[in-house]
């Protein structure tokens, strides 16, 4: 029984999650480009590689923009969060050993201690975002149930992964909950606001192009 569930989560479900993730991403990007072509053709005229890259790079450097300097705590938490949420799963020793076992591929990985700290950072940052949503009146006003759901979606594979890795009580169940929650998160990315992972270069690039090429101003 346990073996059957485990094999399902370890094999077919991983494929399914990655296919939905990749297919969803391609679908959302083509749909967006198609919509822009239909409704807002000027977008393509304004797009300027130099200004787009300039803006994207600027927004990826911590404290490079005025708005970031105005909110130092949020900026710090957001950067640590995004770095950790991407790097931890990609460079986790256990994940790489699983990829090695399946496809005989491997790459550099983080020491487990560092991965532990980064996972704790992700969970703490999710807590911070939750508090911010509950406590700041203007943010609270804009908060809906879907925002809280999204935070839970992102936090759950990290909480269960940390729990399983430290073999706290309930190991086999928590381990499988970790696998399932990670697969759900991966598949959900294209169909939730987590799509900003792929839309970010387009939206930022467009803003940069318009500000740089049309208004002759900076957008940071």
């Amino acid at each position: 029984m346990i073996h059957d569930i485990y094999s399902l989560l370890r094999g077919p479900m991983v494929w399914l999650a990655f296919c939905i993730f990749a297919g969803g991403m391609v679908f959302r990007i083509t749909a967006m480009v198609g919509l822009a072509r239909q409704k807002d053709r000027v977008v393509f005229d304004y797009m300027n590689t130099r200004y787009a890259l300039r803006s994207i790079l600027h927004w990826m450097v911590p404290f490079a923009g005025v708005n970031m300097r105005k909110h130092p705590v949020m900026t710090l938490v957001a950067f640590v969060f995004h770095l950790s949420v991407l790097a931890t799963p990609l460079f986790l020793c256990a994940h790489i050993l699983l990829v090695k076992a399946s496809w005989n591929l491997s790459w550099w990985f983080l020491p487990d201690g560092v991965a532990d700290v980064m996972t704790a950072c992700v969970v703490a940052a999710c807590g911070f975002f939750l508090c911010r949503r509950m406590l700041l009146p203007d943010v609270r006003y804009l908060t809906t149930a879907s925002d809280l759901f999204l935070l839970a979606l992102v936090a759950s594979p990290f909480i269960s992964g940390f729990w399983a890795c430290h073999q706290w009580p309930g190991y086999p169940v928590v381990m499988m909950a970790h696998m399932l929650s990670g697969e759900i998160l991966l598949a959900a990315i294209p169909f939730t606001r987590l799509i900003h992972m792929f839309f970010f270069p387009f939206t930022r690039g467009y803003m940069g192009s318009e500000f740089g090429g049309v208004r002759h101003a900076k957008d940071w």
């Binding site: 485990y6 256990a94 050993l97 005989n104 190991y171 381990m175």
Partner: peptide, 28 residues
């Protein structure tokens, strides 16, 4: 040592998974 680790994992886990008996998860 990833290649050596993999040899252990393939041999131990491979048999456990195919026979549906014995440990297959890291912490087991």
């Amino acid at each position: 040592a990833v290649d050596l680790i993999n040899a252990y994992h393939l041999q131990c886990n491979g048999c456990h998974a195919s026979r549906k008996a014995g440990p297959v998860m890291c912490g087991e």
